[in-house]
């Protein structure tokens, strides 16, 4: 099973922009280890920054995959830049907005922002807490000529379900 780090796609402008949300919940086991209580400090459950980068990678990756009808195998190849300034905890919602800045036969570059909605202060709305810029490779067109399996192992059932439940048509 693919470990999904976005819950729903809320906007999709093909080949240009996609927005997805992730609701953070205490049911996620890793939050209890990130960070557990110590002798001197109480537990501090926060979403690991690395998983926020993965959330952006999934958002931007689906956008790049959708651009070519999911024919290409889109692999995260480089985190060009990532800044995350604040912690995000259980009961909050993260919003990932990704935009394709360039795309060609070999891959794509994306830029994106991470915003946070604290439901305890919902009137304040989303506020930006980070930005992540990424590079994706269309690996069947990789420069080194390495061959990969024919079936698209990147966009499996997990992503198709995500798109379908977000109201976006995908081929079965």
């Amino acid at each position: 099973m693919r470990w999904m780090w976005i819950d729903r796609v809320i906007e999709l402008e093909p080949r240009k922009r996609m927005v997805a949300i992730k609701n953070i919940t205490l049911a996620e086991e890793h939050l209890h280890d990130h960070f557990p209580a110590t002798d001197s400090e109480p537990a501090l459950p926060v979403m690991p920054a690395s998983l926020m980068i993965e959330g952006m990678a999934q958002t931007a990756g689906v956008l790049v995959g959708h651009a070519e009808g999911f024919k290409e195998k889109v692999i995260l190849a480089k985190v060009s830049d990532a800044t995350i300034d604040e912690d995000a905890g259980p009961g909050m919602t993260i919003r990932y907005s990704a935009e394709i800045t360039q795309i060609d036969e070999q891959g794509a570059a994306t830029k994106g922002t991470i915003e946070l909605l604290d439901h305890a202060n919902a009137d304040a709305g989303y506020r930006q807490i980070g930005s992540v810029n990424l590079m994706f490779s269309h690996i069947d067109n990789n420069r080194s000529g390495i061959e990969f399996p024919e079936h698209n192992f990147v966009f499996g059932d997990g992503f198709k379900t995500l798109l379908r439940t977000s109201g976006i048509e995908v081929e079965a």
Binding site: G107, M135, N142
Partner: peptide, 14 residues
């Protein structure tokens, strides 16, 4: 590395 060449191409284009 390999992917950097694509990054360089994109950035030169821009």
């Amino acid at each position: 590395e390999s992917i950097d060449f694509l990054d360089i191409v994109f950035k030169l284009e821009q």
